[in-house]
Design a protein around this nucleic acid. Structure first.
Lengths: 133, 133
DNA sequence: CTTCAAAATAGTAATTATTACTATATTTAT
DNA sequence: ATAAATATAGTAATAATTACTATTTTGAAG
């Protein structure tokens, strides 16, 4: 089953994801990686983001913002989504631990709950200041 | 600014959304509404789901499941996403109230936090039983 | 160090989800 | 009943993502 081989492209994508604090979409990563690999294809970026997600190295995030975002930190944690600029930020807050959740709710739920996270919505500081409306 | 006029199609879409407990995608609503309006167009469904969302009658939800989902309950509340069948369920749990959140975290955050919700991930009861793997 | 099969890539085409466009039909205030 | 505004069906276009394919890269074994 798919013995993974190295590739300079995948290494660069992983390095990029691990060394940035934002939550880029695939084409934001593409734009960055092109500086080093000018003719990398967007499909390669998508494929490797999927591979890295599958490996648990990064995490894929979806919000009501159009395309998917990727997060260099694969551990469950909480996010803030700006409804103006649509950027995603980490919130400096301890992630919700499963055992902090209401055990009665979880026990009553018909299914296996594996993890959870909080998403905050609002307007980020930059947009608050720029958009004086 | 766009004085809203009635339309049988929008009424039907709203009624459908208000009388179902699941969290359908646009084409699931489309499939339902076609029974009553056999040649309604998918664009009309999308447009009216957007209008109803804009009006605050329903809510749009996004997860790592492909297309967007819509929720007949516009109030913030928590969801469970099944990673097998990709369906979205309500969790019978009080929504997180903003004033229950760590005030220090919120005060340190540079931006205006307006609302939040918890998303749970796992496998729903039906998939647990069907998929004996 | 060569060989070679497996895996990865670039480039392109295809698919899916969603939005935009347009001519016609519906709605509603007058 | 009329007419302007809005909505619709049907279609075309766009955006995001995935699939396909011929070629290149990788890495294990000789």
């Amino acid at each position: 089953m798919a013995a993974l081989k190295h590739s300079r492209q995948r290494d660069a994508i992983k390095y990029n994801m691990k060394h940035r604090k934002d939550h880029p979409t695939a084409d934001m990563v593409y734009a960055d990686i092109r500086k080093e690999f000018p003719n990398i294809s967007l499909g390669t970026v998508y494929r490797n983001l999927a591979v890295l997600t599958e490996m648990g190295e990064i995490r894929k995030l979806s919000f009501e913002t159009g395309g998917d975002h990727y997060d260099g930190n694969p551990l469950p944690h909480n996010h803030f989504v700006c409804r103006k600029c649509r950027r995603v930020f980490d919130l400096e807050e301890d992630p919700l631990e499963m055992d902090h959740l209401d055990p009665e709710v979880l026990q009553n739920f018909d299914g296996k709950v594996e993890e959870c996270s909080i998403t905050y919505y609002g307007v980020c500081g930059e947009c608050l200041r720029e958009n004086v409306v």
